[in-house]
Design a protein around this nucleic acid. Structure first.
Lengths: 213, 213
DNA sequence: GCCGCCATCGGGGATGACCCTGGTTGATCC
DNA sequence: GGATCAACCAGGGTCATCCCCGATGGCGGC
């Protein structure tokens, strides 16, 4: 560790930024810290830090807005998300936007320093429990079929549901499973009633939500 | 570590399997080891190990074939890929198929034991350098898109598009933007024509695809 | 043997979706 | 001043969607 890693801190709580500086300022070089999305994009472009510690929840778009604002302008600047949240959506969203790691604020000083060094070295760092979210989302992993709602549908109803949700008309579904349009209507009715939906658009949304397509 | 982790080893080189058993057999319980895809699927179903050490390159489909063969039958069995290859395609392929980690064979005994324990605990484990591949593929799988297609739509058309894609009826859209149903029809027609779509279902799919909702 | 559930099919009807051919207004550009 | 375009609106038609009422035959439980 000849040259200290140059770190930039983005968090809307000044107290938290002070804390970070006090805790790790001796081990890394804090080149700047701001509390808003707009300031962050400008200052990060200017200082070109090695690593950005990025709060996920910020006014005006959060950490994702910064990642998207920077786009891929700074290939040598890695972003490490640092958040109180361990919600899957937050993790996946910020990783999708380009963060190279995600750790929660419960992290210790040593763990944070290690995470910063590893991200700087090109590795990806996660609080262990969070990595699973990313893998699940990535594997497109879905199936885990135990769907109580889905189980209440008959085989035929599930078949029709899938086709309808993909946007086929009743006529097309009828042709595809070789029954009359009227039969398809009956099945769709049953599906809508059982799932307490009111039309095929809600059905599409329902299916998309569960990744049944 | 009261009960030892039950580990199954799949690798087409018997010598390597012997090596693994000799190295870590004292710290974990090796419940079986085989050298082919077919044997692996049968034996893993039978022994229900906690963790499967899985070689990526095997005759007849490799580690992916085993992951797909097991599907999600064994939710409590985690697979850790163990390979000589550090090629991005290998890493991504096997993770997509459902592996919970990927380490190279250059790993030390202690690191391997740690990886096994962490995978067993539900974490995801990577040789540091490889994690980047997964993130790249994941982030890259969704282009952030500034939309040339979208730009060809007028302001009003985009507004209508968003509402239609969310499943609102023409009447509801009309009420929401305070114009007549006929006007909505006109806008929808223009949108469908400009985007070369044939109905509102395709429009929903189009919008979902670009995450405009 | 009756009852319930499933899959199949039908008539009729109300409403929605989509297309076509029109029209008016206002802003902008040359 | 004419051309162009966005935004607005209308009539009329076809087909899709979704609901109401049925019906039949099969299959399994009690």
């Amino acid at each position: 560790m000849t040259a200290r890693v140059r770190v930039f801190v983005v968090d809307d709580h000044a107290l938290f930024r002070s804390g970070v500086k006090a805790e790790i300022g001796d081990a890394v070089e804090i080149v700047g810290d701001v509390g808003s999305v707009d300031e962050a994009i400008i200052a990060i472009r200017a200082t070109k830090p090695d690593v950005v510690l990025l709060d996920v929840h910020l006014p005006n778009g959060g950490g994702r807005a910064i990642l998207e604002g920077l786009a891929s302008d700074l290939p040598d600047t890695k972003c490490l998300a640092l958040s109180v949240s361990d919600a899957a959506d937050d993790v996946i969203g910020v990783i999708r936007a380009g963060a190279r790691g995600y750790v929660t604020k419960t992290i210790t000083r040593e763990e944070l320093l290690d995470a910063i060094r590893r991200v700087h070295a090109g590795d990806a760092v996660f609080s262990p429990r969070l990595a699973g979210f990313v893998l699940d989302a990535f594997a497109g992993s879905v199936p885990v079929t135990s769907d109580p709602d889905m189980d209440r549908l008959t085989q035929r109803e599930q078949e029709v549901l899938r086709l309808i949700a993909r946007g086929y008309t009743y006529k097309e579904v009828a042709g595809r499973i070789h029954v009359s349009v009227k039969t398809v209507e009956t099945h769709v009715s049953s599906v809508l009633r059982k799932l307490q939906l009111s039309n095929r658009h809600e059905l599409t949304a329902w299916a998309t939500d569960r990744r049944l397509l």
